[in-house]
Design a binder for these strands. Structure first.
Lengths: 222, 222
DNA sequence: ACCTGAACACCGTTCAAGT
DNA sequence: ACCTGAACACCGTTCAAGT
């Protein structure tokens, strides 16, 4: 009861803000995140957020990084005792985990797609895949390409459903204009199946193709 | 002269609005496009736009479709007189043209990434690639997968530069945290080269892998 | 140190009014 | 039919003021 009521626990923290923002993005999309709305969700007034983040964009960056942090990277460690280091299997498992993390939070993908920037989990991810490919024997320039092209494919597959991009309305597909899209209105119903199959097909093709290149480029110089 | 000055030519048209919007998006990004700003660029007041488009989003959709319309689809026509129809070469050329169109207008890619929806050029593109793959002998479900996975890869490669996603500042890459990113600060300087090489490497791998699948799935059943 | 209300310069969109 | 100004309900961010 003394007059100096100073230590009064802070209402906000960076973690609490990021958690609330991620929940809001997941539930209602990027457009629903305004500083006023987010603050209301946290029971404070809008400008309070600026005591913890410099801009709204940095809040979204932090949300993006918290999603990157969920990607499993364990398949890249353990230096493999002598045995042939199976980079192909590791790359496959990593891509599956990467896409799974993104698909759990698809609305934040446009922010993630801007690249790692200074986000620690994004940089850790880039570091892990590049290091693993170099360890596997890929020349550094090729390892960079692999990091990039895998990112293209995973980001593209998570950015938006392919099947869901087609409207669920037969009248939208006039056979005179689009002779081969007679069944396209059915895509929306089977979104997950269609996108999962396309991802696995593409990933297998990508890894098969890279294995061929590996034999030419790497195994040949051994 | 006479008092009835009725026919007064309209100041605006859908095309003029779309052209101005595309120019603005290209020059200053999606965030710079506000209805007031766009209207000012066209010499009219903000609400005027609503005589030609129902929402701002539909203006952006129209910009996106005008970019889709620039993708070359000619490699998919001409039914090939008896000879083996080279779907692999067509797919390669199409992917290159697709990516080139997107890279000329990278800021609109997030809108394109929402899928074709009801956009005519987007639907034409989906129709062409699906029809060509079916003609080449792919079963419809596989042709759908190919349309999807190519879209993943091209969208991902156009959504943002891989190399440009890394900051141009050596201090951002502490060797203790990111042991393999010692050269990462150099990526920003060679953006185009690095992204072009990753795209070609990935596309070749993808097509090589699909060719292998084609032999198993299609040629075997002939 | 952390939170607040008021304020500034913006938004997308609607609508009555003009021609 | 097409354009306008005024208005509504929002934005992100700053800042002086409070504790």
């Amino acid at each position: 009861m003394c007059a100096m009521a100073r230590p009064r626990k802070p209402l906000l923290s960076r973690d609490r803000i990021v958690d609330a923002a991620r929940t809001l993005v997941d539930a209602e999309g990027l457009a629903a995140v305004s500083t006023r709305r987010l603050a209301a969700e946290l029971g404070v007034s809008g400008p309070s957020l600026y005591n913890h983040f410099r801009t709204k964009d940095q809040i979204l960056e932090a949300v993006a990084d918290s999603v990157s942090a969920q990607v499993d990277l364990s398949m890249f460690d353990a230096p493999q005792d002598g045995a042939e280091w199976d980079w192909r299997a590791a790359l496959h498992d990593w891509a599956v985990s990467y896409r799974a993390a993104l698909r759990e939070h698809p609305n934040i993908v446009p922010v993630l797609a801007r690249g790692p920037g200074r986000r620690p989990a994004g940089l850790r991810l880039a570091d892990a895949v590049f290091g693993a490919m170099v360890d596997a024997g890929w020349p550094p320039a090729q390892a960079t390409s692999i990091g990039a092209l895998m990112r293209y494919f995973v980001m593209g597959s998570a950015l938006g459903s392919f099947a869901g991009g087609f409207v669920d309305d037969q009248d939208a597909y006039d056979p005179a204009d689009y002779p081969h899209l007679g069944q396209a209105h059915l895509l929306a119903d089977r979104q997950e199946l269609i996108d999962d199959r396309a991802f696995e097909t593409g990933l297998t093709a990508l890894l098969d193709g890279l294995s061929t290149q590996y034999e030419h480029v790497v195994a040949a110089t051994r």
